[in-house]
Structures are given as structure tokens and as C-alpha cells.
């Protein structure tokens, strides 16, 4: 059964007037896998997620989730989906506990079964002590966890997390990541949109890098970094750009001006030669660090994630 509930997006397009917000996105998501859509604001991540669960109608293309095709069968497909939207749409008319029991009613989980499931989920997200609180009394992190708990009422086979940790403090983000990893371990397929590089790198098995509605590259975080940048990057200030450009050209590495300084990737084979050559120019600031997804994005798009 779980194998049948793969999600596949086929050539999704969405245009508003003359503007193409999503352009030909195709990918698949298997049970127990976390796929990330990584891109800056306005890259088309939320529009893509909307097409996956049926509130955005594709201009072209479709989504197949198990036996159901979206957008036409969104209602049936959502019975097996958990959806954490970017906006807070918890019910301010109910307590924390009733937000869960009353929402469970839409899945035909009622009475004692709803109360039991709500209790389990509040324990899972560490909110059992706030069960009788009003939603307005919760912190931002608690609200996000409650939205996640609500999305899990039906024991979904797949969960969409649209920018789930935006605006959360570091502790709350760590807490949320723990829950995501728990879901993955339980066999749930997860689609995560984020513009946080560390979140994508830490959680995702596979990434689709989005820019202006297009997938510009994809792969595992480690492969993407290794393939596009290499193992290490040097951050430099106080050295002429021309010197670094010449170095990059000679050793076939990547160079880019960045802020008030420069970035240059160190070749995987014999990085010490380039590092030594840079150091010989006595830069005012010199930092050697592992390459990351931010560098990947910078190289592929020329812009930073924000």
C-alpha cells in the first residue's frame, strides 16, 4: 500500500496573466523520503505545494498521488495527506485540544477516538501541558507545532511543510526538526519548502533548487555541494579581485565577488596550493570553511537565499 502512495508531479506549470510562476516542475516523492524545495522568496515554492494538494489549479500538468490525480481528486487525496500551510490558520474559537478534536471530525474521527488521537499528538509535539490554552496564548513555535499536530490527525502517508520554521527561534526550529525526523522514521513522505539552507541541508534527502519557477538543479545536499562547488571555500577580504580571478582560472575553481570581499572554491585535489597562494597576498581577512548550499545557490543563480 505504501509503495502505491508515491507522489509524482508531472510538468507543473502555473501562470497568472503573462507571468509564469511555476514552469515545468516534475519530481517524485517516496514514502520515508524528505524532498526539499529550496529557493528564495518568490521562487514558486508555495504555488508548487498548492498544486500538490489541490488549492492551486495548474495551468498545465498534474499530480498523481497513489490512485488519485490532482487537482480533480484533491478531496480524496487529502484524506491521506497532512498539510502545514505557511499561514497560521488555527481556529481561534477553540482551545488547543479542541483545535485537534474538532478538526479530527472532518476525517470522521469522533468522540473518544478523536480525544485519544488529540492526546497522542499533543504529547508528540510536547504541548500536552497547554491543552486547555487558547490558541492566541501560544508562542509562534507552539502554534507551528500545533498546526503540525493537526496535520497528523489522520496518520497521513505524506506531509507538506510549507516554510514551517519561518520566524521561529533556534530552539523552536531544532524542536520542529526533531518532529520532522520522527515522521520520516515512521515512513511518512515529506515535502519541505524552505529558504533556510541549514534546514534543507540537515533534513532533506533530496533537494530541488528553484529559481523563478524553474528547477535549476537537483540532487542530495551533499552531492549538490560537491558537484557544484567542491569541498571547501575560502572567504577573502583585502586582495585584488584580479589576482583571485586569475587563481580561479588557473586552478579551474569558482570565484565570485561577495559583499565587501570574495569567495573562491578550493580545488578538491590539492587545495593547499590555492590556499597558500591566497595567503601569500596577506589578505586582511581570510576564512577557510566547508562549502554549503548557499554557495551552490550563489554559483547557480548569482543570488543569495533570502
Amino acid at each position: 500500500m505504501s509503495d502505491a502512495l508515491n507522489l509524482k508531479a508531472y510538468d507543473l506549470w502555473k501562470t497568472y496573466g503573462d507571468e509564469a510562476v511555476v514552469q515545468g516542475i516534475s519530481f517524485s516523492l517516496a514514502p520515508g523520503e524528505i524532498v526539499g524545495l529550496l529557493g528564495p522568496n518568490g521562487a514558486g515554492k508555495t504555488t508548487t505545494v498548492g498544486m500538490l494538494f489541490g488549492t492551486v489549479i495548474p495551468t498545465k500538468g498534474f499530480v498523481q498521488f497513489g490512485p488519485w490525480q490532482l487537482p480533480g481528486q484533491g478531496q480524496l487525496a487529502r484524506a491521506q495527506m497532512g498539510i502545514v500551510t505557511q499561514e497560521d490558520n488555527l481556529d481561534p474559537d477553540f482551545t488547543v485540544f479542541k483545535n485537534l478534536t474538532h478538526f479530527a471530525h472532518h476525517y470522521r474521527i469522533t468522540g473518544a477516538a478523536a480525544r485519544q488521537r488529540a492526546g497522542e499528538l499533543l504529547a508528540l509535539v510536547n504541548l500536552e501541558h497547554r491543552a486547555e490554552a487558547q490558541v492566541d496564548e501560544l508562542s509562534g513555535g507552539m502554534k507551528r507545532k500545533l498546526v503540525l499536530a493537526r496535520a497528523l490527525l489522520n496518520r497521513p502517508k505524506i506531509v507538506f511543510l510549507d516554510e514551517p520554521t519561518t520566524g521561529l527561534d533556534p530552539d523552536a526550529r531544532q524542536d520542529f526538526w526533531r518532529l520532522v525526523q520522527h515522521l520520516k522514521a515512521s515512513g511518512c513522505g515529506i515535502l519541505l519548502t524552505t529558504h533556510y539552507m541549514d534546514e534543507a541541508q540537515r533534513l532533506c534527502d533530496r533537494l530541488l533548487l528553484l529559481q523563478q519557477g524553474k528547477v535549476i538543479d537537483e540532487g542530495t545536499p551533499t552531492d549538490l555541494v560537491a558537484r557544484v562547488i567542491g569541498r571547501e571555500v575560502a572567504e577573502i577580504e583585502g586582495v585584488e579581485a584580479q589576482i583571485l580571478q586569475d587563481l580561479a582560472a588557473r586552478y579551474e575553481t569558482w570565484y565570485r565577488a561577495f559583499g565587501s570581499g570574495h569567495l573562491i572554491s578550493l580545488p578538491d585535489r590539492d587545495p593547499e596550493v590555492v590556499w597558500g597562494a591566497i595567503a601569500a597576498h596577506h589578505p586582511s581577512r581570510l576564512l577557510r570553511r566547508p562549502a554549503n548550499l548557499e554557495d551552490v545557490f550563489l554559483r547557480l543563480t548569482g543570488s543569495v537565499l533570502e
Binding site: T55, L76, R78, M81, I83, T85, N89, L90, H106
Partner: peptide, 9 residues
């Protein structure tokens, strides 16, 4: 919007 994340049309 929240209701439309449930299996409701």
C-alpha cells in the same frame, strides 16, 4: 483555507 487542507471539497 484550513478546512480545505482536510478531505473536504
Amino acid at each position: 483555507q484550513a478546512l480545505l487542507t482536510a478531505p473536504l471539497s
